[in-house]
Amino acid sequence: MDRFAELQLFVQVAETGSLSRAADALDLSNAAASRHLHALEERLGARLVERNTRRLYLTDTGLEFLGRARNLLAELQDAEDAVNARTLKPTGTLRISASLSFSMHHIAPLLRAYTERYPQVSVHVETANRYLDIIDNNIDVAIRTREFEPDSNITVRRLAGTRRLLTASPRYLAKHGRPQTPEDLARNHQLLIYTYANNPYELRFTRDGVETTVQVKGLVESNDGQVLRAAALDGLGILILPTYIVYEDMVAGRLVPMLDEWDLPRLTVNLAYPSRKHLSAKVRTFIDFMAEHFVMLNYERKWTGHFGEN
């Protein structure tokens, strides 16, 4: 048990960069945490952690040992998860990573139903518009809009496809009119640009096998879709975001789609999670819960069809 506690403590120190935060995470006193770390270094005969007045950091030996320690703890977790999976009693903290927009529209509204169904699971939602490293950040499940992961240790499960649409508020359209062609966007309109999109200043449209590319600039630019959505609702410009963000606004008439006969490159909404022989019950139940929800609400059809067909 002491060796297990030492490994847990060391990994927490590495991930939090603080002995006190690691102690808090493991419900230890600072003194007990310091003893565990000292005992581990004494047993290994090596210095793993260096401290100065400003920060704590791992030595080269500590960095090498960190990977091995994580693997050992992961193997133990896999063994426990295999038992949990068989007993169907998900427990523990489920760590989810997703963009702020997806979290607000498609995770937060489901938390009540999921936690009521699985009351022994607590949920931590980490919002980030850049993709966090799943392994390094101890993420259980991440929502991604790319087809594959560069890390072969990550499994990807498709949830739904989604178009990217141009929408604007009735207020904006009353003042500026509707674009009639993709080229009108660059000449006569104000655009709201999501800077984390692939090639955000280049819009590649296709229609009936014909492709046209328009170079654009934004009146307002942001790395967060909710900032741009708020600006669009206020009549500031034309929004370019995935359907899963703006669908309810279109249904309510707050935003109006335009150039709908043209397609921008589509995205795929996926679940990404560490590839392990035994998925923990909390991860497996959340994956199944999300897939069930997407099918029930028919998101694939809603998000990939033309708006008049939904």
Rank of each mutant, 00 (worst) to 15 (best):
N310E: 07
Y172G: 06
T285V: 04
F102M: 02
N30F: 07
R158H: 10
L28Q: 00
G92R: 00
E50I: 10
D24A: 09
L40A: 00
R21K: 15
L76Y: 09
D184E: 00
V210P: 01
Q180K: 11
I135P: 01
G225L: 11
M258Q: 06
I154M: 05
L63W: 04
W303R: 13
T181C: 03
S20Q: 10
T91P: 01
K217I: 09
L72E: 14
L297F: 07
L132N: 03
S275I: 00
Q77N: 07
T213I: 14
V121Y: 03
E149N: 15
R35Q: 09
A113R: 15
A113Q: 15
V123I: 15
L192F: 07
R55K: 13
I134P: 03
I240S: 10
F10L: 06
F4H: 15
L236Q: 14
H189R: 01
A281P: 06
A25I: 05
A98Q: 07
L72M: 13
H189K: 03
R130D: 11
D2S: 12
D133G: 09
K89P: 01
F4M: 15
S169W: 07
L40V: 06
G308S: 13
L58R: 08
R158W: 02
Q77V: 06
I135H: 05
M250D: 07
L259Y: 05
G177M: 09
L159W: 12
L297Y: 09
H38S: 14
E202M: 14
E50W: 01
E202T: 15
R178K: 14
T127G: 00
A230K: 14
A174K: 11
R229G: 00
R21M: 12
D60A: 13
P242Q: 12
Q180D: 04
R146C: 04
S222H: 13
L111N: 00
L191C: 08
I143S: 01
R144E: 10
N188D: 14
Y201H: 13
A5F: 02
P109M: 07
H36P: 12
R117Y: 08
